[in-house]
């Protein structure tokens, strides 16, 4: 692996922190992830996020057609535990998923409870494309006015996410990565409305 692990993960993390603190902000993880050369059937930026998040203290779940291979490799690399979908701290929904798998992941991922709402899942989704078109409008903390965006993925995710996050502070965080390494994050506090 031709990657300076310490500094690549640090710069990638700061980009993620910025995306999450300012929903609607998009960053490219290309400088950090392009050099990754690992035999896992996922985007390189997804792999970077796995390396950023996973260790023996947390659990994860992968959704995709070749999930067994990916889970085995990621467990060996990071030491994290594979868990059922409803118990995983991090859920990775890969590009080669079956239709409807993203909605199922949103519905089934863990939510924490009101005493410990931070124990909810973070769902990482591989999408076709993250762009700055104005199909969706974001509002909430981190956004000064409203932020236009467009995430090309399963159209129903907006409604499923809204249903999942209906009882704030309970909710899940969603991170979106595309093939061109673009990263986009939506915390539970963000309200998404569709532009008609």
């Amino acid at each position: 692996m031709k990657v300076d692990y310490v500094h690549s993960v640090q710069t990638a993390y700061r980009k993620l922190l910025d995306c999450l603190a300012k929903p609607g902000t998009m960053h490219s993880l290309r400088p950090e992830s392009a050099a990754l050369d690992l035999p896992v059937a996922c985007y390189k930026s997804t792999m970077m996020l796995m390396m950023m998040f996973l260790d023996p203290e947390v659990s994860f779940h992968i959704i995709g057609r070749r999930k067994e291979d990916a889970e085995r490799y990621v467990t060996q690399l990071c030491g994290a535990r594979v868990s059922p979908l409803g118990e995983a701290d991090f859920v990775f929904v890969l590009k080669d998923r079956d239709q409807g798998a993203l909605i199922e992941a949103i519905q089934a991922s863990k939510l924490g409870d009101l005493v410990a709402p931070h124990l909810s899942a973070t769902v990482i989704v591989e999408v076709e494309k993250n762009t700055a078109h104005d199909e969706l409008l974001l509002s909430g903390p981190g956004i000064q006015w409203v932020s236009p965006t467009s995430i090309i993925t399963d159209a129903e995710f907006v409604d499923s996410r809204a249903a999942k996050n209906v009882e704030y502070p309970l909710g899940i965080e969603m991170l979106f990565v595309d093939e061109d390494h673009r990263l986009f994050a939506i915390p539970r506090t963000t309200t998404i409305s569709k532009v008609r």
Partner: peptide, 27 residues
């Protein structure tokens, strides 16, 4: 020492906590 004193696992644990903190303001 490692860059920024901590080992990478320690940084990872703090970074995960920070992400949830940003996602739930004031919690």
């Amino acid at each position: 020492y490692n860059f920024a004193f901590f080992d990478e696992q320690s940084k990872r644990e703090i970074r995960r906590a920070l992400l949830k903190a940003v996602a739930i303001p004031g919690y």
